[in-house]
Design a binder for these strands. Structure first.
Lengths: 147, 147
DNA sequence: CGAGATTTGTTTCCTAGTCAACATGAAATG
DNA sequence: CATTTCATGTTGACTAGGAAACAAATCTCG
């Protein structure tokens, strides 16, 4: 009947490794009262504050709905604030408290990465980065609107 | 202050690519009325039928609770059945209908993989497979109990 | 044998994110 | 200008899965 092996699919292993990495990371940042998506959200604003929700959605590869709810949670935690921007538009910005949390979280991200990928040789790490970068570029994943 | 870039982390790119691949695949298999997790579940049984829920959970890297719910859904769709196995234990098995769906789904998995990774050279594909395999092994992800 | 310890599958609670419908404001077109 | 079109952010319904508390059955040893 010729059914390809499940384990032949790169997508399968990619999902398996990615889930493991993310779950471990989730446990780590939970100690700071933050989820992975919230961290990405904050990190994105840290890099370029004062961003509109729609733009952030594109950058994070999520829907506007998800961003809206994330913003709700982060606002409730006092880490992010919504600034009005004429008419219906709004601007998302880190609060000082939110901003002050970023370094500790970044350290956790470093640790988690080291824990998973530190075992690979320098060359292998570079190769993995190159391959992922190539895939991202090919499918226009990071390219959306970084404006 | 020295905060590492979000994009410096391999875990970040891994998640980004993995999510994109999985989401696309999800759309494809949805046409067969199945989700990604359901496909992995069925594929695992196709490879080795008559497996206990706990063993399957380990193989799929999910909790027993998730498997329990997945089994509910698949049973409702008539694709999987629960066989009693003495006392509290049970055995999961594909129904003929479930089994007959596997080849079409496998073809979709092939297509999706080709769509994402087909653009890479043979060498790059092999390299990616090797790196992912190495990460899986290092963290004992697939190794759990394949008994 | 029998009381505690383990294992197994289920359930509840919670967080998360997609999709689609919506409301509201801005822009475009006649 | 008025009206249609479009873009923006929000909401509700739904699917998903983890964590932890459970119930039921089995094991383990004194």
């Amino acid at each position: 009947m010729s059914v390809s092996n499940l384990t032949d699919h790169l997508g399968y292993w990619l999902r398996m490794v990615s889930n493991a990495v993310s779950q471990d990371f989730a446990r780590k940042v939970a100690s700071e009262g933050v989820t992975v998506a919230e961290w990405v959200f904050m990190r994105a604003l840290f890099e370029k504050d004062e961003t509109a929700p729609t733009a952030l959605a594109a950058r994070m590869g999520m829907t506007r709905g998800a961003i809206s709810k994330l913003a709700d949670r982060l606002e409730a935690k006092g880490l992010v604030e919504r600034l009005e921007a004429g008419g219906r538009g709004q601007i998302l910005s880190l609060t000082p408290e939110g901003r002050s949390k970023v370094p500790a979280l970044a350290r956790m991200a470093d640790e988690n990465d080291a824990e998973y990928f530190g075992g690979l040789s320098r060359d292998d790490q570079a190769a993995l980065a190159r391959l992922l970068g190539s895939l991202v570029e090919r499918r226009g994943l990071g390219t959306i609107p970084l404006d």
